[in-house]
Design a protein around this nucleic acid. Structure first.
Lengths: 205, 205
DNA sequence: GGTAGCAGTTAACACCGTTAAGTCGTAAGT
DNA sequence: ACTTACGACTTAACGGTGTTAACTGCTACC
């Protein structure tokens, strides 16, 4: 009937409903209704609701990763790259809060275990940070004895900051943007050497 | 019938089921069944399921706060206090993962808005960090131009780390404990001055 | 022309949160 | 002592959920 395959139509309907109504109000019946098929048709292409949501998560992760990759290409110094990654991460979370939050739905409590093979893609962002860190270490601008772990710490810290912001746990007297900016500075300065900390503001890119 | 009031029996049954089966499988009917009353009885004491869960969250926050308060009393240096707070926070999350995760259920997507007045209690932990930071600043061991914001970034970073650990997003080749330890060091060193960073390992408490 | 298989359907199951109406015992009022 | 009122609790029901099994109709092939 429709040009797109049913599977694609399901995915985009699901994404649309997720973004408009939130994960909490996402139901298979609503998704099906919105594209004029029966709810059970979804099971022809996904083995469960969680399976469908997993692909939405995958999508979101890919979009975030793409944004991160792009943000880094025209930056020369590793420190600038690190800053770009952090800034892009934060912007993504602010611009697409529901999409961002769905990425972190992979918690063991809210969803059946995220399949291991899909984690590969999720780790691409981690790889980006790792590359920047090792590059920075080799040219002495970044100090880190175990970059494998540091790359994860970097993500974790950023996620923590955005999670506090998005769940509106912030004291109303604290300005959100100021908080984010200060947090990013804090996180980044934790990775770079004292020397480049002072130099960075002079040189571009 | 029972000695305890029904409200208390509901709360403790709910907590028990939450810890054993997870938030995802928590239902009013199961809670009611487990204490031998009808599901609608819950509405005599709570105005909705979310309301009940909110009190569970409140409980969990209080337990975490209590642990944090205790951890800090016999420490003398602000830096040691900060370390104790971080360590206690992490231990709590590891020892009671479900209880910890329920605290962060207050996200706008999973739950109706957490009532503002209950946020007061939640901010007690924030107050603890703030005190330690201002104390450290006044004696020159901690460097921070805006402690109000810094107290939040401290929480946020810790939460990010534990959220990555608990959602099992960590690369299997990375040792969990090593990651946590390194992350804590990273976060803490972001707040203390270069001098005390070198001195801390010599003096106790 | 029959038939196998695929894409989609309907019907049903067992659950869910929530509301309205009913029951039953106890305490107070007269 | 009889009625009334009220509180604590239950039953019945509504509209929703994810998921399974059985059915329909169509298309392609032998």
């Amino acid at each position: 009937m429709n040009k797109q395959s049913l599977k694609l139509r399901i995915i985009s309907a699901a994404r649309e409903l997720l973004l408009s109504d939130g994960y909490r109000n996402l139901s298979l019946r609503k998704i099906a209704r919105s594209i004029g098929v029966s709810a059970t048709s979804i099971y022809l292409h996904f083995e469960s609701k969680d399976d469908l949501v997993h692909t939405l998560i995958e999508e979101a992760i890919e979009r975030l990763n793409r944004a991160l990759e792009i943000s880094v290409v025209n930056k020369k110094s590793p420190v600038k790259k690190l800053e770009a990654l952090a800034q892009t991460y934060v912007s993504f979370a602010l611009k697409h809060p529901r999409e961002y939050q769905v990425i972190y739905l992979v918690s063991s409590e809210e969803m059946t275990r995220y399949p291991k093979k899909k984690f590969r893609k999720a780790r691409k962002g981690y790889g980006l940070v790792l590359d920047v860190l090792t590059e920075g270490i080799s040219c002495g601008k970044i100090e880190e004895e175990n970059p494998n772990i540091a790359a994860y710490t970097f993500w974790a810290q950023l996620h923590g900051v955005m999670s506090v912001v998005l769940s509106e746990r912030l004291d109303t007297r604290i300005d959100q943007n100021e908080f984010i900016e200060e947090a990013i500075n804090h996180i980044i300065s934790g990775y770079i050497t004292y020397d480049s900390l002072k130099l960075e503001n002079i040189v571009d890119n």
